[in-house]
Design a protein around this nucleic acid. Structure first.
Length: 211
DNA sequence: GACCAGGCACATC
DNA sequence: GATGTGCATGGT
C-alpha cells in the first residue's frame, strides 16, 4: 500500500465526501477548534447554538460575545472552557492581524499564514492545517489520529512518527492539489470512524486484503 | 459502565 | 525530545 493507491481505494469505496460541512470559511475555522478531540455530532450541536445566537455571522459579531457566553453556547462540544478561551485567542489574533477581515489574510503566503496560526495558543498543527485547507483553500495535507493509525497499520509509516514527517511523506507522494487533499482527509476520517478505531474492525474494511 | 472522539498546552523528567 | 495529564460532552 502507498499514499496514492490508498486514496484510489478509498475514493472507489466511498466516493466524494463533500467537506468541510460548513457555510462559510469563518464557520470552518471555529468548527476546526471545536472538533479538537471531539466527535463531530457533538460539534454540530455547538455550531447550531452559535448560529442561532448570531455569533457565527462574522468574526466581529463573535468578538462581541464574552468568553463566558461562548463557553455556554459550545458546551455540547465538550472541553468548553478550554475551547472558549481558544476561540477568544483566535479572535484576538484576527483582530490584530487583519482587523477581523478574513480577506486580508489571503495576502499572506501559506507558510506565513501557517506560522501565524500556530502562534495562537490553542491552535496546533492539525487545526491550523484544517483552516488552511478548508477555509483558505491552500494545498496542505491534514494529518490526524486516524491518518497516522491507517498509515501505520498498513506499513506506510512507523508508529510515533511526528505530524510534520507524516505530512511531508504525503505531500511528497501527491500533487499539490486542494481538491485532492480535501477529499483525502475526509476519506481517511470516514474510514477511521468505520473501521480504524484503536480497537480495529478490519473484517469489512475496504482496505482488507489490499496491498 | 467503559470506551472513544476530525487535539493541544503544560508540567515533568 | 519523550511521556503523562487535564480538559468534558454525548454516542455506541
Amino acid at each position: 500500500m502507498n499514499v496514492r493507491r490508498l486514496y484510489d481505494v478509498l475514493f472507489a469505496a466511498y466516493g466524494p465526501q463533500y467537506w468541510w460541512p460548513a457555510d462559510t470559511p469563518f464557520e470552518v475555522m471555529i468548527g476546526a477548534i471545536l472538533t479538537q478531540n471531539t466527535a463531530w455530532t457533538n460539534v454540530e450541536k455547538a455550531i447550531e447554538n452559535l448560529k442561532s445566537s448570531g455569533a457565527l455571522k462574522s468574526p466581529s459579531a463573535m468578538s462581541r460575545f464574552s468568553t463566558k457566553k461562548i463557553a455556554r453556547l459550545i458546551k455540547p462540544a465538550g472541553y468548553y472552557n478550554v475551547k472558549a478561551k481558544r476561540i477568544h485567542n483566535f479572535l484576538a489574533f484576527l483582530d490584530r492581524s487583519c482587523g477581523l477581515k478574513l480577506e486580508r489574510l489571503s495576502q499572506k503566503t501559506t507558510a506565513e499564514l501557517r506560522k501565524s496560526l500556530l502562534d495562537v495558543n490553542g491552535i496546533g498543527p492539525e487545526t491550523a492545517d484544517s483552516m488552511l485547507l478548508y477555509a483558505f483553500g491552500r494545498p496542505v495535507f491534514v494529518v490526524d489520529a486516524y491518518a497516522k493509525r491507517v498509515f501505520s497499520r498498513h506499513g506506510m509509516i512507523r508508529t510515533g512518527v511526528s505530524y510534520e514527517a507524516v505530512q511531508e511523506i504525503c505531500m511528497n507522494s501527491l500533487p499539490a492539489d486542494v481538491r485532492l487533499y480535501n477529499e483525502y482527509h475526509a476519506l481517511i476520517v470516514r474510514l477511521g470512524k468505520d473501521f480504524c478505531r484503536p480497537t480495529p474492525k478490519c473484517e469489512l474494511c475496504p482496505l482488507a486484503g489490499t496491498k
